[in-house]
Simulated assay, not measured.
Amino acid sequence: MEIKIGHIELVNNPIESANDYFAMQNPQNTRLFCANELDIETARSIIDESYIASEEIKQILIAALSYNTYAQNALLKVLEEPPSGTIFIIYAKMKSLLLPTIRSRLPIINHIKQQRLPHFPLSLKTLNLEGVYRFLKEREKEFNNPFLKEEIQSLYLDSIKYGLSFSAREAQIFEKALFWENQYESTSNIFAVLLLLVLRKKKQQFNVTLKG
């Protein structure tokens, strides 16, 4: 007999979706853990809760906008060998927010509704070094921005639409940037790399136009 341990749900708004589901369940056997970033303390609370005996099947709902790597590693054992009668449902915006070891333990259900990405906060047409400096100063104390990945994607797409052409190596920098926050890089450091790259490509494009 297959033992059901739960699943991962990909949704546009993890916290809202988890709360909506929780509202329809019996609070006696459903526990909800929500956070902007799932940290190690919350992970320990989840583990403690999972070992509290229940007469009926207990659901543990976990929803966050970002997931701390240490917290995920802490949850691995309880997801691999869950207490009897405990089901885990993890809500996330993207599967890339979760470690491969987490994803391998639970089936993934995709409920993402495709949404058009907003434009990057800075205009590529007027982007210059001064504007980049002001933008980075505004973001220098920012960590765990729940919209960071969307902003990185928006910057890349806006750059392509503007007419900039990236090499495979340069495009890979944008891909790597999606995971830099998990390594505790600040938002300003991440965008310093990307925006200076975009400025350099703009300069190269301008020089090619002049020669033409």
Rank of each mutant, 00 (worst) to 15 (best):
E37N: 08
L38C: 05
D39E: 10
T42P: 02
A43L: 07
A43K: 00
I46G: 02
D48R: 12
S50L: 02
I52L: 08
I52V: 15
A53V: 13
S54E: 10
E55D: 12
E55G: 02
E55L: 10
I57F: 06
I60S: 01
I60H: 00
I62V: 14
I62Y: 01
A63L: 06
A63Y: 02
A63W: 02
A64S: 05
L65P: 01
N68G: 06
T69W: 01
A71W: 00
Q72P: 01
Q72W: 01
N73E: 05
A74Y: 04
K77E: 06
V78H: 00
L79E: 00
E80R: 05
E81H: 07
P83R: 04
P83H: 02
P83M: 11
G85P: 04
G85V: 05
T86A: 00
T86H: 03
I89G: 00
I90K: 00
M94H: 12
K95C: 07
S96H: 07
L97P: 03
T101E: 12
R103V: 14
S104C: 08
S104A: 08
P107V: 15
P107S: 14
I108Y: 04
I109N: 13
H111T: 14
I112C: 11
K113S: 12
Q114L: 15
Q115G: 03
Q115M: 10
R116E: 15
R116L: 13
L117P: 00
H119R: 11
F120L: 08
F120S: 04
P121Y: 06
L122V: 12
L124F: 11
E130I: 14
V132S: 06
Y133M: 09
Y133P: 03
Y133C: 09
F135A: 07
K137Q: 15
E138A: 10
R139K: 10
N144P: 02
N145A: 12
K149W: 06
